[in-house]
Amino acid sequence: MSKQLRSGARPVFVDLGCGPLTAGLALADLHQEEFGSPLLTHYVGIDIAPAMLDKAREFSKSPVFAPESTFSFFTDWHHSLDLLSGDLVQLTNPVILSASYLFASNSLEVESLALFVAELQRRCPSAPIYFVFQNPNRDDRNVNYTNWKKLLSGIKLLERGATRVYYRTNPRSNWPPSSEEVYYELLTFQPSTFRS
């Protein structure tokens, strides 16, 4: 991913289940640390909760994003396809699809997400598309992810692993931070189709 970002391309960052822009801020912060400059990106945040999208819009003003960055928000990933294939992806590469904790949701429509990815690939055949998956490292929380991968052909695994993350739910707490082991995968796609 660093190689793609270093190339000078303006990545399209599609944050699936974006919440309050958490993964977008993390990527921009990582870019700032690694390259010493704000991230220039086309950010597309998708979340079913309008309150989360309102908070994401607020956080999009953060100085870790270059002023020329663009931000678009949707409540359904299929509604973002025209923007992605029409204006954004044709102008820039790579496309980074981020699914951070998305697959832990019991309400996730796995087939709908697979159709979205297959359609994005169909509309943007020359764009390098990466899929970043992060979820708790527990089998019971990753059933949706396993089922989703079975619906797409042409998936290529680039990297996988597990890491422990630390976090605080209350910044004023004197208790030690909580932690959780997170499993991650970085995927790309050969020419892919949806398997019904």
Rank of each mutant, 00 (worst) to 15 (best):
Q4V: 05
G8C: 07
G8H: 08
G8P: 04
A9Q: 13
P11G: 08
V12N: 08
F13W: 06
C18S: 15
C18Q: 02
L21S: 07
A23G: 03
A23V: 00
L30K: 05
E34M: 03
E34T: 14
F35H: 12
L39P: 12
H42Q: 12
G45N: 00
I48Q: 11
A49E: 06
A49G: 01
A51H: 12
L53V: 11
A56G: 12
A56T: 02
E58A: 11
A66Q: 10
T70V: 06
T70E: 10
F71S: 09
F73K: 01
F73P: 04
L81G: 02
D87P: 02
L88D: 08
V95H: 01
S98I: 01
S98Y: 00
A99T: 14
S100D: 00
L102T: 14
S105F: 12
N106S: 15
S107M: 08
S112V: 03
S112Y: 02
A114S: 13
F116V: 14
V117W: 04
V117G: 04
R122C: 08
R122V: 05
I129Q: 10
Y130N: 09
F131W: 15
F133H: 15
D140L: 08
D140I: 11
V143D: 07
R160I: 04
A162N: 14
A162R: 12
Y167N: 09
R168F: 06
R172I: 04
W175R: 14
P176S: 10
S179Q: 11
S179H: 15
Y183V: 14
L187H: 14
S192H: 00
S192Y: 01
